[in-house]
Measured scan of single mutants.
Amino acid sequence: MSYSVTLTGPGPWGFRLQGGKDFNMPLTISRITPGSKAAQSQLSQGDLVVAIDGVNTDTMTHLEAQNKIKSASYNLSLTLQKS
């Protein structure tokens, strides 16, 4: 079951990613910084990142996902799936 979260910026957003197409692993939330915008939302460590700002992550490399997140200036919309 997927869910959506919109973090209001600017960054830093307070989470780290792992995985990506180049690692043959789905993009997942690997760490959440305590007290951060991510920590105050529904994000959980281990959640799968399905889309970033409406763009499906199935074919994204780790770097492409990082760049997509960094390019979000004020709002960052994520679609996630609980692990």
Results as ranks from 00 to 15, higher is better:
M1S: 11
M1N: 15
S2A: 09
Y3E: 04
S4G: 06
T6H: 09
P10C: 11
G11Q: 08
P12G: 05
P12D: 14
F15M: 07
F15V: 08
R16V: 13
R16T: 15
L17N: 02
L17G: 00
L17R: 00
L17C: 08
Q18C: 09
Q18V: 11
Q18I: 07
G19R: 03
G19A: 02
G20M: 01
G20S: 02
K21L: 10
D22H: 04
D22S: 05
F23N: 08
N24D: 09
N24R: 10
N24A: 07
M25I: 09
M25S: 15
P26M: 03
P26I: 01
L27G: 01
T28M: 08
I32E: 00
T33Y: 13
G35K: 11
S36F: 03
K37W: 11
S41C: 10
Q42T: 15
Q42E: 15
L43E: 00
S44L: 08
Q45L: 13
G46Y: 05
D47W: 02
L48V: 13
V49K: 02
V50C: 10
V50D: 05
V50H: 07
A51M: 12
A51Y: 07
I52F: 02
I52N: 00
I52C: 01
I52P: 00
D53I: 01
G54L: 03
G54I: 00
V55D: 10
N56W: 07
N56Y: 10
T57Y: 02
T57C: 09
T57Q: 02
D58N: 10
T59H: 10
M60H: 02
M60N: 01
T61P: 04
H62M: 13
H62Y: 12
H62N: 15
L63G: 11
L63E: 13
E64T: 07
E64M: 07
Q66F: 14
Q66C: 12
N67V: 10
N67G: 10
K68I: 08
K70P: 03
K70S: 13
K70R: 14
S71W: 08
A72S: 11
A72R: 13
S73M: 13
S73K: 15
S73C: 10
Y74Q: 15
Y74F: 13
N75W: 09
L76E: 00
L76W: 01
L76N: 01
S77L: 11
L78Q: 00
T79I: 12
T79W: 07
T79Y: 06
L80A: 08
K82Q: 15
K82L: 15
S83I: 11
